[in-house]
């Protein structure tokens, strides 16, 4: 989707401002927002692509005005409301008003270390041969789906070189909509700065993205 989250190459006035000795969290509410989001993945049953879409699918002004964990918070609210795990009147009241919806599993204290250690590997066994090989010239397709995609705007329509074949991975564009994992070959594609940004670009710049096969066409 065309959202404010897709920031690569967008003109931005301010400098990057590093914070010396930055803490992991800047407020207690950030700790809580982080933890409830992580813990709700298990009973909620959504996948990482659904949660990314829930965060990015919002008006540009809203996305830009919210801090990082504020976006996590509204993303979480949306995911639990969509699944009927919590009702709007409960959010408004700030307390539980209805019986819980049965969930398959919850995250127990004993389960935390294992959940984090397992993570969520996305590589799947390939059922087709990879269409591209290292060294092939490809072009990123010009696509503008209204749904979730991981092909950033700034590479669309531009030509690059397949640098690495990364295996067959869960395809976010399908996974985010509930259409299934639909694994696709994933490649590191490298673009020259001049190809992306024109002749004013730093001549010694190259930019790589990881792109699934459906994002690419042979040139």
């Amino acid at each position: 989707m065309e959202g404010a989250h897709d920031m690569g190459g967008v003109a931005w006035s301010g400098p990057v401002v590093p914070e010396p000795d930055e803490p992991t969290f800047h407020a207690e509410w950030e700790r809580r927002a982080f933890a409830i989001t992580m813990a709700m993945g298990m009973p909620g049953g959504w996948n990482i692509d659904m949660s990314r879409f829930a965060r990015e699918d919002r008006p540009r002004e809203d996305y830009l005005a919210k801090s990082y964990y504020q976006i996590w918070l509204v993303g979480l609210e949306r995911l639990i409301l969509e699944r009927g795990l919590v009702a709007p009147d409960e959010i408004a009241a700030g307390k539980s008003l209805h019986p819980p919806k049965p969930v398959a599993k919850t995250l127990t204290p004993e389960g935390v270390a294992g959940m984090l250690h397992r993570g969520g590997p996305t590589e799947r066994e390939a059922t087709t041969a990879a269409r591209f090989a290292a060294g092939d010239r490809v072009r990123a397709k010009i696509i503008h789906p209204p749904t979730h995609t991981r092909l950033p705007r700034y590479v669309r329509g531009h030509a690059g070189i397949i640098e690495r074949v990364l295996g067959c991975h869960v395809f976010p564009d399908s996974n985010a909509t509930g259409a299934g994992e639909n694994p696709q070959w994933l490649y590191t594609v490298t673009f020259d700065g001049v190809e992306l940004w024109g002749k004013e670009s730093d001549p010694n710049l190259t930019v790589s993205v990881d792109a699934w096969e459906p994002y690419l066409e042979r040139t």
Binding site: G44, L76, V86, P100
Partner: peptide, 16 residues
């Protein structure tokens, strides 16, 4: 808002 949400999720037994 975060406090309210955590309360609801805890009361419903979704989070420990």
């Amino acid at each position: 808002r975060v406090r309210a949400l955590e309360t609801i999720l805890t009361e419903k037994g979704y989070v420990d």
